[in-house]
């Protein structure tokens, strides 16, 4: 495995004080926080940063790491001798198992009872960690339910100690009526257990793929429907595509652009189904032929109509 330079990960010097390390960590934690970060690999970076902080913020581990670091450069091939920590007295405040499973092999080898005890331990058994992933589905899948194949990248440490991602392909049943932000739990699809322990679960957080036609708020769906001036003025029964299929509805006479018509219960299905809102948009036919221009001129003559006057503008 490769030697990791934890100082480089946090961007601090080897002589950084505890306060400087804390500060660098917080700055990076803010930068890579999933709710604000726009970096594509923020999750992986945050994991590295957490690992570096776990070592450098603990005076005992930092001292031991510094001693070891004198012999290695970042990225260099690294094999700790079984006695590497001889001469150091640790307080015994170990890491949570969750930390060990999140962190790299490099970390587990140094500070976990990690690699070593797990191989030796006869009765050591642990349930695998739960894992989390966000996935995007089409809005239509929430209306009808669907079977979708998803491919997740699972970070894994290879035999060389490098972090590489493995593809985890799953065919998942998307239940009808699911909303953005809801989770699907897949039992036993998380991290594998240790020593015969059961696997953890995988939680999928659902989001909808961006769609130029539909907008979603909770279970309510909004769509813009283009209509002709005469349909708006005279009223009409029109047909349009919706996420649940073709729907015919009435445009009331005297409608204008921006008018919203609510089709109750036609949003995302559920015990309390959402509503579907049709937002009307009046589209003028182009005046690109003599006949079309003549029709507009006729309207101009025949209508005593000045929308600016009516609005007081």
């Amino acid at each position: 495995m490769e030697f990791k330079d934890y100082y480089q990960v946090l961007g601090v010097s080897k002589t950084a004080t505890a306060e400087e390390i804390k500060k660098a960590y917080r700055q990076l934690a803010r930068k890579f926080h999933p709710d604000v970060s726009k970096e594509p690999d923020s999750e992986q970076r945050m994991q590295e940063v957490n690992e570096a902080k776990a070592v450098l913020s603990d005076p005992e581990k930092r001292l031991a790491y510094d001693q070891l670091a004198q012999q290695y450069r970042s990225g260099q091939d690294f094999q700790p001798s079984p006695e590497w920590d001889a001469g150091f007295e640790f307080s015994g405040r170990g890491f949570e198992e969750a930390d060990l499973s999140e962190f790299s092999d490099f970390f587990a080898n140094l500070f976990g009872q990690g690699g070593r005890t797990r191989q030796k331990g006869r009765s050591y058994q642990m349930r695998g960690e739960d894992r989390h992933a966000k996935i995007n589905i089409d809005l239509k899948d929430a209306f009808h339910g669907a079977n979708r194949t998803i491919i997740l990248q699972v970070p894994q440490v290879d035999s060389q100690g490098r972090v590489a991602s493995r593809e985890h392909t799953l065919s998942v049943q998307i239940p009808k009526g699911i909303k953005a932000g809801q989770h699907i739990r897949l039992i036993g699809q998380g991290s594998p257990g240790v020593g015969g322990g059961p696997s953890g679960d995988l939680y999928l957080e659902i989001h909808f793929t961006l769609d130029s036609q539909y907008r979603v708020d909770g279970r309510d769906v909004y769509q813009t429907v283009p209509i002709t001036p005469w349909e708006a003025a005279l009223g009409a029964s029109i047909e349009t595509t919706t996420p649940s299929g073709m729907v015919r509805f009435k445009v009331p006479a005297g409608s204008q652009t921006g008018r919203k018509l609510r089709l109750k219960g036609r949003g995302i299905p559920g015990q309390e189904p959402g509503d579907l809102y049709m937002e009307l948009e009046v589209v003028l036919p182009p005046a690109d032929t003599d006949k079309a221009r003549e029709l507009y001129k006729t309207m101009a003559r025949e209508f005593a109509f000045d929308p600016r006057q009516r609005k007081g503008g």
Partner: peptide
């Protein structure tokens, strides 16, 4: 190498 599983999950909220 990709592994293919067909799984049917629980919708959290229907199941809490």
């Amino acid at each position: 190498m990709a592994q293919q599983h067909t799984v049917s999950g629980e919708l959290i909220d229907e199941v809490t």
